[in-house]
Structures are given as C-alpha cells and as structure tokens.
Design a protein around this nucleic acid. Structure first.
Lengths: 164, 164
DNA sequence: CTGAAGTTTCAAAACTTTTTGAAACTTTAT
DNA sequence: ATAAAGTTTCAAAAAGTTTTGAAACTTCAG
C-alpha cells in the first residue's frame, strides 16, 4: 500500500470511528491528520489536505484544543498558527477519558443520584429505585476506574493487563 | 421528587447519554422506559408513554433486540408483542461492550493493521508507521480488556476493582 | 375465505448537525 | 495611520439523521 492511500484510509477510518462515538467527523479527521504529521500544520494546510472550509477547520481545531489533545505553536518571524497533536497515544487516551468522564459520566451519576430520592411505594417505584440504584453503583465503579486510569501512567495499565 | 418526575428525568437523561455516545435518542429512551418497567410493555404503551410514532418504536425496539438487550415476550391468548429489557446492569454493560467492540473496535484494528504495511521511507512514512503502530497496540490492548470483561461475570469486575 | 388485529416497511417531512464563505475583527510591520 | 496577513464569527445552506404515518403485509379466529 502506498503512503497516500494509507494516509487517506487512516483519516477516513478515524473520522468514522469518531462519528460512531459522538465526535464530529471533521474534528476526528483533523486529529488524524495532525497525529500522523511529523510537522505542525497551519489552518491552510489542513483546509487543503482535508478539503474543508476555513471556518470548519478553525472551529474543530479549537474543539481539539479544548479537549487538550492539540496545541498551537508559533514560529519566529511567522504570524501563522501551527497546530500539533500530542503523539503519545497513552496521553491521548487519558485525555479523552478525562473529558468524557467529566462531560458524560458525571452528569448521569448526578441525575441517578437525584432520582434515587423518589418518594412513594409500590411495584413501579420499587423497580425504579432498584434499577436506577444499580445503574448508579455501576456508573460510580466505572467512574472510579476511569479516574484511576486518568491519573495513572502507561506502566499502570500494562501492569493491570498482566493481572487479567 | 415524585415518581413521574423521576421517571421523566431518568428517561431524558438516558436519551441524552445515548446521543452523546452515538446511540439514537429514541432507542435509548425506549430502553430507559423498559428497564424501569416492572412489566413487559407493548408497542402501543411505548408509543403512548414516549409520544412516538409506531414506526419509530418498531424500528428502535428492533435495534434494541439486535443489540441483545431487549426481548420480545408473548402472553397466552394475546397476539400483541410485549417487550422487556434485561434488568441486570452487568449483563447490559457486557452486551453493550460486546456489540461496540464488534462494530467499532474491530474495524479500526483491521484498518490499522492494513495501513501498517505502507511502503517507502522518509520522515512522513516513519511517523505514520510509528503512530498507527502505537494506536494498533493500544487498540488491541483495549480489545483484550473488553474481551475479558465480556466473558467475565460480575464477580471478576469486583475483584478487579479491589486490585486497583 | 373474510375480517380484525397486529406488525412492518418506507418515502416523505421534520429536525439536527455540520459546513461554508464572506464579513468583521485582530495583530503586526512599515 | 495604513495596509497586509491572519483569525474568528456567524447566518445561511447543505448534509445527515430521525420521525412520521399511511399502506402493505401477516396472522389468526370465526
């Protein structure tokens, strides 16, 4: 397989994976492009490479910076912004876990806690309390694991794998 | 909080969580309704409760059955289909992991393997191989953990938590 | 066989999200 | 102060997804 094919295939696949997980395709593709690029890229280079408008690139590059997985660089004597993705896959996974935990697991735990205090009795209420209670326990366990993961180093994960 | 408020709040939250994770909101809401319901429900009851059309309910109930987290029941002397969600949260998590692994992790591993065989040399190709190689290793590790999880019982997970 | 009850399908409509591109804004050099 | 280069914003358009509802289909009882 030649480099261009491989690159396109990877960018496409990463975009699709992103979409399936609720991440904007453009955002995932820009990330894919940056992560395989040995050099920092400008907005124009990204626009050109991925055939996207300036506005779209700008918006999604900012989202990536928001997630903490892409940073802006500057070169002396050049006013353009250059973007780089963190190349460390472990760091990427940690950062993504951190963000999704904050944005999605924590809110659902909050709701599950709130609805736990439902009053009254009867079959429906009992079932409701039982199920939401279990979901809450489970979510908290997952949250705990993610928290560990987020605070860990790569080594921790490798050691964990050994134990399985 | 009274039961109806709690129920609506939970259904809404579950729908939102679903959307964030690439699952159709209607599908997540139907699942939410079924999982807290002590009785199996008919399509009409779901339509009524969630204010959705028959087509929408039918399509999403089928998707839930496809995922293996909802089943159809029948009652003697009644032609209607009754739907029940599995109440076991661990089983739910396992089933969801199994499906997403099959649908999303495996395809990306496949692509990462394919693009690994890129030919040629130079900075770009080297970087590409390095990064996609690391992503592949990482994905395979995650895949392995999920595989263990999918094949495990609840006890395994609790023991694992102890080790952390 | 016929009709009633239930289920499924699917094209069109509604809705949501993403993308564009041009205008406004900011920064820097002269 | 001006102009050039770059960046950001945002309303409108396009694309994508979900939902509807009515028609087609299936199954069963009489």
């Amino acid at each position: 397989m030649d480099y261009l094919d491989a690159k396109h295939k990877f960018i496409q696949a990463w975009g699709t994976l992103g979409s399936n997980w609720g991440i904007n395709k453009a955002m995932a593709q820009i990330h894919a492009l940056l992560i395989i690029s040995p050099e920092a890229l400008t907005a124009d280079e990204i626009m050109d490479e991925l055939q996207m408008s300036r506005g779209n690139v700008n918006m999604n590059v900012r989202a990536l910076m928001d997630w903490g997985i892409v940073t802006k660089e500057n070169k002396v004597g050049d006013r353009k912004d250059y973007f780089v993705a963190d190349k460390d896959v472990w760091e990427l996974a940690r950062q993504v876990s951190r963000e999704r935990r904050k944005r999605e697991i924590e809110p659902i735990i909050k709701v599950l806690s709130q609805v736990q205090v439902v009053e009254g009795s009867g079959k429906k209420v009992d079932e409701f309390k039982a199920v939401t209670g279990e979901l809450k326990d489970f979510s908290e366990k997952v949250d705990g694991v993610l928290d560990k993961f987020v605070k860990s180093d790569q080594n921790w994960f490798v050691k964990l794998l050994m134990k399985l």
